Amino acid sequence: MPYFSIIIPVYNRPDEVNDLLESLSKQTYKDFEVIIVEDGSTVCCADAVKRYASIVDIHYYYKENEGRSIARNYGLERAVGSYFIFFDSDCVIPEGYFEALNAVLNRHYTDCFGGPDAAHDSFSDVQKAINYSMTSFLTTGGIRGGKVQLEKFTPRTFNMGFSREVYDRVGGFREMFSEDIDMSTRIRQAGFDISLIRDAFVYHKRRISMRLFFRQIYIFGMSRISLYLLYPDTLKLVHWFPACFVIGTLAMIVASFFWWPAILPLAMYLFAVFLVSWCVNKRLKIAALSVVASIIQLGGYGMGFLKAFFYKVLLGRGRDEAEEVRLRKGK
């Protein structure tokens, strides 16, 4: 039996799955199986699976559309490995990923881990800018695997793994937004170790347009309040930063009509984003797009956060939702 079982939920992403499987076929360490769960797609990836079936140990399942969490749990129920790995279908895996991961687990075994993500050279300028805004300390406080972090590291399912023992005790994913943060929190509460393995990174394509990025990040902001209702002690100061950015930006814009220097703190912050991105990505266009992506990332998250906080916390409309989530077993 393979040691690792890679579980990938898919919805209408045949091209991305082809790139993902190609990268898995080139791994220097091959003791793994790949379980692809097609979650009711109208554009299937079956052809891509057939293309690599003779190279990679792939198990392909098609089921009706029920959501990412249920698709992952469907794969978990059919996995035979001792350690489960989760990737998003729009990831590309460096060829040394599993060799590096296996080496770390042999030296310092951990029950659950997460790895960071990066932008591949082949990605578009927009994707690189979005990747910067999602990983920079200036925008996210390093909570997605940065070298400096403002809170405990929480694995995300674009690059996450845990042991069969974890699954047997904690169960699978619950169907909800930010289901990976919920899962990581339940794993930590059950007493398991969680580690960041920086060498086990993936290339994450993310959204291909700023419009889609805003929609995604807005939902992230709303789901943070849902997580707060489930786990009140998990809401940290860093999670308030985007909301403060929204409120502060509006206040500075209004104040600048009466006293123009009021806008300078915002301008200086955005210039810092531009400068750091330029140093990291080595291109002025990506640096400029990084400013736009960072405004969307902070503004979208902050607006979703504030809206959910008003309705679910101040008006008390989130209590029933939180109780309903608690009753879900994650199976």
Rank of each mutant, 00 (worst) to 15 (best):
F158S: 14
N159W: 12
M160K: 12
S163I: 13
S163H: 15
E165F: 12
E165H: 13
E165D: 13
E165L: 10
V166P: 09
Y167D: 02
D168H: 14
G171V: 05
G171P: 07
G171L: 06
G172V: 11
G172T: 10
G172K: 12
F173K: 09
E175C: 10
M176W: 09
S178H: 06
D180P: 01
I181P: 02
I181M: 11
M183N: 04
S184I: 01
T185L: 09
I187T: 05
I187F: 05
I187Y: 07
R188P: 13
Q189A: 13
G191V: 00
F192S: 10
I194F: 00
S195I: 00
S195M: 04
S195N: 11
L196Q: 15
I197H: 10
R198I: 00
R198C: 00
D199N: 05
A200M: 11
A200Y: 14
Y203S: 09
Y203C: 04
Y203P: 09
H204F: 00
H204M: 00
H204C: 00
R207V: 04
S209G: 03
S209P: 02
M210D: 14
R211M: 08
L212Q: 01
F213I: 08
F214G: 09
F214T: 12
Q216H: 03
Q216C: 02
Q216E: 08
Y218C: 04
Y218E: 06
I219Y: 02
I219F: 01
G221N: 03
G221D: 05
M222D: 04
S226I: 02
Y228W: 06
L229V: 04
L229I: 07
L229G: 01
L230V: 03
L230I: 04
P232M: 02
P232L: 04
P232Q: 01
T234M: 10
T234R: 14
T234A: 04
T234Y: 08
L235D: 01
K236V: 04
K236Y: 12
L237V: 05
V238A: 06
V238S: 10
H239M: 14
W240D: 05
W240S: 05
F241P: 03
P242H: 04
A243T: 10
C244P: 03
C244M: 09
C244F: 13
F245L: 03
V246C: 12
T249Y: 06
T249Q: 05
T249E: 06
L250F: 11
A251I: 13
M252T: 06
M252P: 02
I253N: 07
I253Y: 03
F257Y: 14
W259P: 03
W259H: 09
W260D: 05
L264I: 14
M268I: 15
M268L: 15
Y269T: 12
L270C: 13
L270N: 08
A272N: 15
V273Y: 15
V273K: 12
F274C: 12
F274P: 14
F274Q: 10
L275R: 15
V276G: 11
V276E: 15
W278I: 10
W278D: 12
